[in-house]
């Protein structure tokens, strides 16, 4: 067993290096260069109260808010303590029933025509903070009516909150639902 000593000691030393020094160093550099991101990109209101992170979606069901994508997290949708997807297979009858119910809910709330898939199919993380622009578009009439705003006002806010592809070509154009809804509330309280 003459290999025992080098194997054991090497394991212990690398535990210190990779498990202590390395993450500590990354944390130090991260706090120095990107303190906000390192701590979750949490936004605060004007009273310095933490009001959530634009990276972590929140559940909205009121007609006056834009609704996010469905979320399959445990207990309630957008539960950050239980990230995950539905893991439903594409031919599962229970799943198809769920999607059908969601389509109906959108139609009942005033959406017209075919519904964009992102709005009735749950995200992988269950915390997806974004909508595609077309998935937000179908909700404009409902939100405007519930708030007594003109549709073009809501359209304008939506356009302001729509982000282009990152660096102009990466990913998809998207709308952050939390930011959009906070912007709506702010506009109304003005």
């Amino acid at each position: 067993m003459k290999e025992l000593r080098p194997a054991l000691l090497m394991f212990l030393l690398f535990t210190v290096i990779c498990g202590g020094i390395y993450p500590g160093l990354v944390t130090g550099i991260a706090y120095a260069l990107f303190p906000s991101q390192a701590q979750g990109s949490i936004t605060t209101d004007k009273n310095h109260r933490e009001i959530g992170s634009p990276l972590i979606g929140q559940p909205f069901s009121d007609a006056k808010y834009f609704w996010p994508r469905p979320s399959a997290t445990a207990d309630f949708g957008y539960n950050p303590m239980a990230s995950g997807g539905s893991n439903s297979g594409p031919t599962n009858p229970d799943y198809l029933k769920t999607v059908s119910d969601r389509v109906k809910a959108q139609h009942d709330a005033g959406a017209l025509g075919n519904i964009p898939s992102g709005l009735v199919q749950a995200s992988g993380s269950g915390l997806d903070p974004d909508l595609t622009p077309d998935a937000a578009e179908v909700q404009v009439a409902r939100v405007a009516k519930a708030r007594g705003m003109a549709e073009h006002q809501v359209e304008k806010l939506l356009a302001d909150c729509t982000k282009d592809r990152q660096l102009g070509f990466l990913g998809e154009p998207r709308v952050n639902v939390l930011e959009l809804n906070l912007a709506l509330d702010k506009q109304e309280s003005r």
């Binding site: 994508r69 997807g85 539905s86 893991n87 439903s88 594409p90 799943y95 198809l96 999607v99 059908s100 389509v103 139609h107 025509g113 075919n114 519904i115 964009p116 898939s117 992102g118 009735v120 199919q121 749950a122 995200s123 992988g124 993380s125 997806d128 974004d130 909508l131 595609t132 077309d134 990913g171 998809e172 998207r174």
Partner: peptide, 17 residues
């Protein structure tokens, strides 16, 4: 899913971004 009145790519389990 398309038959239920949905259009677009398969988004189940995917992230928008």
């Amino acid at each position: 899913v398309a038959k239920l009145g949905v259009h677009g790519v398969n988004m189940e389990g995917k992230e928008t971004r």
